[in-house]
Simulated assay, not measured.
Amino acid sequence: MTDSLSTPNNALARLMLKIADVFEAIILKVSAVCCWSSALLIVVIICNVTMRYGFQNGLILFEEIQWHLYAIGIMFGLSYAEITNSQVRVDVVASMLKTKTVLKWEIFGAIVFVFPTIFVILFNSFDYVANSYLLGESSSSPLGMPFRWLIKSAIPASFILLAMAVLARLFRNIITITQKEA
């Protein structure tokens, strides 16, 4: 989680900090559940390999479950990476800039690039999931997974969490910049 210096003086900053804390707490709770997808993924891979090479009988169902578990781990991991400041960035450039400049670039990037991207994905993903549900979409494989809409619903869910994470970080960056200037 990003740090703001101390408890802010004005009411708006305290509200922003409280919202950031609530959003981050939600993300941490969801991430604590979703992180188990990696452990489950390992178990499914071991079962799949054992079935395929030990008994010459692999199951398509196991392969599809693997894809879904990868998706859960990666998509929900985005918001966790954002609030823990473990996302990929160009640290070589950031290390040469002043802290205030880095924070301003982060604010600019969130507003100009990240939020519009999240909006477009969310705007389109709800219809994507709804159409899948209405069609009763399932795997094209006879022994594949049913309820394809369920994994597709990870798209809007994970991007809502990502929006919350970016907003929390944006609030903390704004508070940090305004406190340093005060």
Rank of each mutant, 00 (worst) to 15 (best):
Y133F: 15
R89M: 15
S132L: 03
F108N: 09
M75I: 12
S141I: 10
Q87D: 06
I111S: 13
S132I: 13
I83A: 00
F108T: 09
Y80N: 01
M96G: 00
V112T: 00
L135W: 10
F113R: 03
I83K: 01
T99W: 10
L134N: 14
M96C: 05
P142D: 00
L134W: 13
P116Q: 06
M145Q: 08
I118F: 04
V120L: 14
L69S: 06
P116R: 12
Q87L: 10
V102G: 05
E106P: 05
V112L: 08
L69P: 01
E137D: 03
I121S: 00
S79Q: 13
V90M: 12
A110Y: 11
E106L: 10
V90T: 06
L143P: 06
S138Y: 11
T101G: 05
L122Y: 01
S95Q: 01
D91K: 15
I72K: 04
D127H: 13
F115M: 12
I72L: 15
I83G: 02
N85A: 12
P142K: 01
L143V: 14
D91S: 15
T101C: 07
L135F: 15
Y70V: 04
A130W: 14
T99V: 10
V120S: 04
W105A: 00
E64K: 08
E64Q: 15
T99K: 11
Y80D: 04
L143E: 12
M145C: 05
V129W: 01
M145F: 04
I111K: 13
Y80W: 09
K98P: 07
F123Y: 13
V92I: 03
E82D: 03
D127P: 08
T101K: 09
W67Q: 06
V114G: 05
G77E: 10
T99N: 09
A71G: 11
N124L: 12
S139I: 13
I83P: 00
F108E: 07
G136F: 11
L78K: 06
S132R: 03
A81S: 14
S138T: 07
I83D: 01
